[in-house]
Nucleic acid binder design. Structure first.
Lengths: 238, 238
DNA sequence: GGGTCGTATATTGTATAAAATCTTGAGTCA
DNA sequence: TGACTCAAGATTTTATACAATATACGACCC
């Protein structure tokens, strides 16, 4: 299988490969990523590797210090809460604008994603699960006339995916998400936009809570003296 | 003057140079950016130029199509409103978390920024004005325990800067912003956080309105049949 | 005459090699 | 003993050269 069929350039391929390697924990948080080693591992030169690293820095997965190199960025409770606060704010807002504009073709696409979703759950394929989950959410918002917000949410979903991986993602949780997605589709089809937005907010909050329950202890072990970050709510301004 | 003193790498230098060239309109929206030409213009090889272009794509200033090249991204009413909606949501939220934690050193820094601000206004230096404006806002939020939100707002401020440039930025408007910034400092020092957040929201909205008054016509000329984008408000969910 | 295929040219993408920068440790001097 | 210098090694950054890809245009077939 030649992966170039899906990727226009080598750099884009390395971006995906490296991202997966980080998400699966093959390169754990804090690990150094040496261009030389990566280039050899993937059988390419260092140029595509460099460009991939820059891309991943923009996504927040790695941190690059000039002349020193790239390290996998650390996970932090503060960022988890920040990311999920942002999702809780931005995603319902996008849905409110997008849902009324979704047409038959969009709903068919959503159903197709749901089908693949079920497949990946059955196969216990956590890797696929995360990307399909992001795909589903973005498809929901695709009609919103807010390109910048969509780009931001896309990157937030990437980050969420990373955090979701550190727990073993019980298939029970994955299936709960699938059912909630189905409910979302129904609400949107019935044009119950207000209700769909509230449901979406609760969905995001649910994922956060599941995550914190598992991840909280993991992070606590790594940094036992970390100051308890106030669980800033998404509604602080209302 | 060796610019390397301020920039750790050539790529970083080119990023700043190119960004300025785009913001000032030297490379107008829709213009093609050929790596070869840029490399020759700056007297460097194409590698740093490539990396600069990727960085600028992450910032949203250019759009890259594989094997076709980079073009300066178009300005659009939809994006203006999206960006300012997001600022109206995210910036007060950050301030609410940061303001109570600002200490004496922070306020001194803010005052220093204000001084430079006045200087650039007196000198009619629009270029500086934009970056100092961003610096001020970010300094206000620096104590918020929300790194991801800060990064997002930083990029939104960059984009706002670009839009602000297309109007000639009347020095009256710049001075109004300066006075409002002074008011913000006072409110934060008095620990009137709630009031400061509301004031900040109005400040952002004021800049948006000024901008739309001038930019609306510019864009209307370029795309006369553009569908009127609904001026989505920031409060749609409350 | 219309459409499709193939070639020429320009531009981008990648590999290889050279230059610059940072880190580390030995060695020297106060 | 402690701190400082500086040279060697490793790593990143940049330059140069080569390969791959897309676009435009003309020839050729239907």
């Amino acid at each position: 299988m030649n992966p170039r069929l899906k990727h226009r350039t080598l750099s884009a391929l390395i971006v995906d490969e490296l991202r997966q390697s980080i998400l699966t924990g093959e390169h754990p948080a804090g690990a150094q990523l040496r261009q030389d080693a990566l280039a050899e591992a993937y059988g390419v030169s260092r140029i595509p590797v460099r460009e991939a690293l820059f891309q991943l820095e923009a996504e927040g997965l790695v941190r690059i210090v000039p002349h020193k190199g790239a390290v996998v960025s650390e996970l932090s409770l503060a960022e988890i809460n920040d990311v999920f606060d942002l999702r809780g704010i931005l995603e319902p807002r996008l849905l409110a604008h997008s849902a009324p504009l979704l047409d038959a073709a969009d709903f068919e696409r959503l159903e197709q994603i749901q089908a693949r979703f079920s497949g990946s759950i059955a196969a216990r394929n956590v890797r696929e699960w995360g990307t399909i989950n992001a795909e589903f959410h973005l498809a929901l918002y695709s009609r919103a006339p807010q390109p910048r917000s969509q780009a931001i949410v896309a990157s937030l979903l990437h980050t969420s995916d990373r955090y979701t991986r550190v727990q073993l993602s019980s298939s029970a949780a994955m299936d709960a998400a699938r059912r909630q997605h189905a409910e979302l589709i129904e609400l949107c089809q019935a044009r119950k936009t207000e209700k769909a937005c509230r449901f979406l907010f609760d969905h995001v909050e649910g994922v956060r809570k599941d995550l914190l329950r598992v991840v909280g202890r993991v992070l606590a072990k790594k940094a036992p003296a970390e100051s308890p970050v106030s669980r800033s709510t998404a509604r602080s301004r209302s």
